[in-house]
Design a binder for these strands. Sequence first.
DNA 1: GTCTATATGGGGATAGAC
DNA 2: GTCTATCCCCATATAGAC
Lengths: 200, 200
Amino acid sequence: MDQTKMRILSAAAKLFDIYGYKGTSVRHIAEEAQVNSALISYHFQGKQGVLETLIASYFDTLFRLVEEQEIEYRDAPPYERLEQIIGLYLRFQCEHAPITRLIQRELSVESMLAREVLTLYISRWKHGLSRVIEMGITSSEFQPVSTDRIVLAVISQMTYPFLQAQMVRQVYDLEPYSEEFALWQQASIMRYLRACLLDA
Amino acid sequence: MDQTKMRILSAAAKLFDIYGYKGTSVRHIAEEAQVNSALISYHFQGKQGVLETLIASYFDTLFRLVEEQEIEYRDAPPYERLEQIIGLYLRFQCEHAPITRLIQRELSVESMLAREVLTLYISRWKHGLSRVIEMGITSSEFQPVSTDRIVLAVISQMTYPFLQAQMVRQVYDLEPYSEEFALWQQASIMRYLRACLLDA
DNA sequence: GTCTATATGGGGATAGAC
DNA sequence: GTCTATCCCCATATAGAC
């Protein structure tokens, strides 16, 4: 990928994150990327193409990492695998915070794109967690519970603080991108999971 | 409030929810409300005025309900009060789902309005929960924990499934506005709180 | 309070030169 | 691949008649 395309993508990611997709103009992206505005249509067939490229590469990278980790922890017990996958998701969200926020926000509006992202990517994103839980239930290491509901609760705790980073900073006096926050978040989620999956 | 203003407000709430604030035009609101588009500027000084009115009345209603409940449960033990306030927040979110989604989405974009909502309303929204937890800690009924972090985890579990209602329906096969979902959500949050506040 | 008509600006996209 | 100039559309907001 040549330099111009990269500059456009990172400028767009930054501005979409801050002002939203509709709140960001092609001209503004071009200015931030220090690139002529016509190049955005040339390289990405328009503003929506930029968004789609960002989303696709976000999930492609994530799923590649998940696959690598699944091979590495193939023989680990479910609880440990759960801990690992949650750690991976959290780290990834934090390292790709602008696009995470962008995706989560745009998913909540009605659009063709949102529906496609849900079916193409989000179900697989969820599956990364639910398969590990189901594995633990099958092997009787976890209580038999409604996997979907548990996964939804976990994803809520993982994702909401990143989406509402300004709220977290301003109202909760916490820094959502700090190492300390990530550690607490993981500990909190694992405590929840123990209460659901291990205790009666 | 006369009928025209009401029609505009409910049309706007519906469309802002579905298409987002920026994704909704004044013309579209007027059409949905079956009202002349000039009346929106006349009654609310523009599109942003409609949004501000919706947000203000949402929180005014919520805080009124919270105050009423605080009087009613004045002498109840902290755990029961916690259960009550969470139930109230959940019911309110569900009954005012479009505006809840709208607010949560728009909060995540950088704007003057978002900052004002955070300082004016969200801190008080959080306080409704944190004061009950702090009360329980003071009376030694709860473990001494970081209230802010717990409240953030609770709010995440309460709010994210409503914001991402389409995801919940399409990927999790759950209906976020159903009675059954609300019951499970409350039970799940209380289980989390017991694990944090009561157990070692 | 409500309407019509319109002013004014900004948006995304592209044709065509280099 | 990159730039300039421009087209066309749609948005918000308002002036002024009723």
